[in-house]
Design a binder for these strands. Structure first.
Lengths: 197, 197
DNA sequence: ATACCAACCAAGCACTTGCTTGGTATTGTG
DNA sequence: CACAATACCAAGCAAGTGCTTGGTTGGTAT
């Protein structure tokens, strides 16, 4: 008793249909770009007609928003958890890079790429609603980078360093192939070498 | 006598109208994205009607191509010339970073950003026609980076390093403001610090 | 004056876009 | 079973898309 079983889709646990839409959207928005991907294309990928999408989302824009909102929360949580396990500064630095690389080149890579590369396609209102979560994620980065500077591992300003490293890491979407000869661990090492002196 | 004055627009020196279209296109394609920017918008910015654009270019796609083709040639030439003036390895490394940063944050910044961020919006044929020029530019990068490795300034693979640095540098479009407190020279120094150990 | 031509306008065509509407299966619950 | 609620289809609308067409203009060379 208590509350009925219909606490189905409070906000954080999408229904099966929504799940399929979000996954397909992440992939297509990444592969083809948000503006070039039509609702018909997306519906085709899900296996429904285009109009049916609007039973689950009010607009195409809201689908983009949902993809981004979800992956921000995931990345923030994953980073917080991984950092909590890391003891010394250098391993925390490593965790920073590793978490981001694993997201971008792992199963949630499409969503992560969409977050980065389609930010400007999101409506200003959508951007505003996501700012807080994004800022929280970046704050974790800067805390670690600041810690690294105090430990003498680097002497670049944490904010500048975060932006530079973030750029280098997200750009790997465009050239790095996890199936190729270079492993994600190798890549992680190369990025880490950029920070450490 | 000789040839008539109408050696006007051989290929490399766009007419005044084309010049205005290309400049407006570079700005708009960067600010709004190629897909979201309509031919009417572009025509408005130039001060003509949308149909008149097609007197100068065969398609919207060809305008994007022209913007990219031009800026590739410029960057390649600028880098070659600047490298020729640099004596030692470290200053050649600095020239590499400086040239790219100056392009991205200088008067041709819009075109340079379009080249980087709208590459996927270009037709496959267009991409193929630009590959050679792009490869030539990247080859210059890798030659310097390889030289730096042989000099013991770094020990990361040149290709990997090029991609990482390139990512960090082009991403500055999204956060760095040349008018802000940090100068381009400061930024150049920060990027250089990533490479040198 | 004449001939010419690049540059542009005015209008609109064929098509695609995101989204709506009204109805029908399908599903879970008392 | 009844009965909602959910998920979906079928059809299409209004607005916007890239691009075309036929014609006008203003300047330049003959």
């Amino acid at each position: 008793m208590g509350e009925p079983a219909r606490a189905e889709t409070p906000r954080d646990r999408p229904s099966k249909a929504k799940r399929r839409i979000l996954d397909a959207a992440a992939r297509l928005f990444h592969e083809r770009g948000f503006a070039r991907c039509t609702v018909r294309e997306l519906a085709d990928a899900v296996g429904i007609l285009s109009g049916s999408l609007f039973h689950h989302f009010r607009s195409k824009d809201e689908i983009l928003f949902a993809v981004m909102e979800e992956v921000i929360a995931e990345m923030d949580a994953a980073l917080a958890e991984a950092l909590a396990r890391a003891a010394d500064t250098e391993s925390r630095l490593r965790v920073l890079i590793r978490t981001q690389l694993q997201f971008i080149h792992g199963p949630r890579g499409h969503a992560a790429a969409v977050l980065v590369y389609e930010w400007d396609a999101l409506s200003p209102e959508g951007q505003a609603r996501l700012l807080e979560g994004r800022a929280r994620y970046f704050r974790q980065w800067e805390e670690v980078l600041d810690e690294a500077r105090q430990a003498g591992l680097t002497d670049t300003d944490p904010t500048v360093l975060r932006q530079l490293i973030h750029g280098a890491v997200v750009w790997t979407v465009n050239w790095f192939d996890p199936q190729g000869p270079m492993s994600v661990e190798d890549l992680e090492q190369a990025v880490l070498a950029l920070i450490l002196k």
